[in-house]
Every structure is written in C-alpha cells, then in structure tokens.
Amino acid sequence: MTGFLTLQGKRALITGGTQGAGAATLALFRELGAEVLTSARNRPGDLPEEMFVAADLTTPAGCETVAAAVRDRLGGVDILVHMLGGSSAPGGGFAALGEAEWQAELNLNLMPAVRLDRALLPGMVARGAGVVVHVTSIQRLLPLPEATTGYAAAKAALSAYSKSLSKEVAPKGVRVVRVAPGWIATEASLRLAERLAAEAGTDLEDGKRRIMASLGGIPLGRPSAPAEIANLIAFLASDRAASITGTEHVIDGGTVPTV
C-alpha cells in the first residue's frame, strides 16, 4: 500500500475529545480528513459547534443524547474512539472507596463505552465495516494501591469487555482494538507535577521525576505527548491496520516492566 495515512471520508465519534490526548486525537482525525463529532458537558470556545454535543456521558441519558446526535448529524459512524476516562477518587487505599466512589469510577471509565457501543455498533455490523478503539490504561496492569484502585479496576473491566467484543464482531467486519497509555503529559498531569514540586520545595522537573518514580520509572525518561497517543490511535483506526483486531497496544515509554 502506498500513499500517506488518511481517514478521508470516515465518520468518527471521539469521546473526551475536548482536552489532553482526546483533543489531540480529534485534531489529527480532522487533519486526516475524517468528519468528527465529540462531546463533553461544556463546549470549549475554540471547538466549532457543529462538531460538538453537550452531554454527560456518565449517565445513560447522556449516552443516548450523543448516539442520537451521531445518527442525525453523521448518519452513523465508521470509527468510534472511547477516550473518556479519569478519576476523582480520593487517595487512601481501598478503605477510602465507598459505594459512590466505586460507582463513579465505573460510570466514567467503563459504562460510556458499553452504552455507546450498544447504540452504535449495530450500524457498523449492518454495513460490515467499522473500527472501535477503547482507550484503557497501563494502570490495569500496574495499579497504585494508594490512589488508583478503582480506576485501574474499571480500566481492567473495559479491557476484558473490549477483548470479548472483538471476538464477537470481527467475523462481521468490525475491528475492536485497545490503546493503553502510560503517563501522558497533559495539562492536568503537569499541574500534578507542579503541585508535587511545590510540596517538596523543588522545581517542575523534580515533580515529573516524582511521578515517574511512582510508576516504577519510565525507561524512555519522559511521559508520552498527547500527539503521540493520537498518532497510534489514528493508525489503528485507519485501513493501514486492516488485520489488527482484539489486541492491546501499550504506549508508555517502557513503563510496564514485564513481557
């Protein structure tokens, strides 16, 4: 196959596409020719209104709002990228996580993908073509007991769900893949580095080193850039990756220490 990577003519929904790696993915998809829709509770001022749906994807009603907008505006999707995720759970280990905290982790990191797949995958299956990308996390392999137990468990559930889904729909022409990032240099993660540095009376670089140390080290010596995550997702979503399905692709600078 010759020529540059392209998503020309593809219709895509990217959840969590208003900041961080999600925003980088949305921008790259547009650059590569895709017609893109994304969602959040509030629209950023620099995002065109026709590309945005206001919705709370942690709720069934919010997912249905976005699915309906996809059908009305795009007529369905060829690519579905589940970038939405994160955690607001308190530190303190398992005892700090009550019913509300556990439900919040699942409602943010697992259920939006389940609900939107359920709403939009039938259209892909009917056409016999499509790609679903679930963004998981290396935390499913390296949970931090003090801070990410709920998040890691939800991402592990997302990964298992994704693998099962891939086996079901691959014979029907739909590919399902996973992307598992490590630490990404987003504005939020850099704010964390700044806070850690301030608490220690050091500088930003020391704050970054502290985050890397908490992960057991990053052999590459730095976090991934949002654009690097976007590059991997765009390749996997493209026709260049036509025989890749059911797999998880780790992008973590070498953080995971096992084979």
Score class of each variant (00 low, 15 high):
G3A: 07
T6L: 10
T6I: 06
Q8G: 12
R11P: 09
R11M: 06
T15P: 13
T15I: 06
G17D: 09
T18Q: 11
G20K: 04
G20R: 05
L26D: 11
L26I: 07
A27R: 11
F29A: 15
E31P: 08
G33M: 04
A34I: 01
E35C: 11
S39N: 06
S39A: 15
G45F: 03
P48R: 04
P48E: 06
E64V: 06
V66S: 12
V70H: 08
I79N: 09
V81P: 12
V81H: 05
L84R: 11
G85D: 09
G86F: 00
A96T: 06
A96Y: 03
E99R: 13
E101R: 06
Q103A: 15
A104Q: 14
E105Y: 00
N107C: 07
N109E: 08
N109I: 00
P112M: 04
L116C: 09
L116S: 10
D117Y: 00
R118Q: 15
L120N: 09
P122C: 07
P122S: 10
V125G: 10
V125T: 13
A126P: 10
A126W: 00
R127D: 11
V131Q: 12
H134Q: 14
L141V: 02
L141R: 15
T149N: 13
T149V: 15
G150V: 01
A152S: 14
A153K: 01
A154V: 00
K155I: 03
S159C: 07
S159Q: 10
Y161M: 04
S162L: 01
S164E: 07
L165D: 12
S166V: 00
G173W: 01
V176Y: 05
R178C: 14
R178F: 00
V179L: 10
A180P: 09
G182H: 04
W183P: 11
A185M: 07
E187D: 15
S189V: 05
L196P: 10
A198K: 14
G201L: 05
T202A: 15
D203R: 03
D203L: 03
M212K: 07
S214F: 03
L215R: 13
L215V: 04
L215Y: 10
G217T: 01
L220G: 08
P223L: 04
S224I: 02
A227F: 00
I229C: 12
L232I: 03
L236S: 11
R240L: 13
H249G: 09
I251N: 12
D252G: 09
D252R: 04
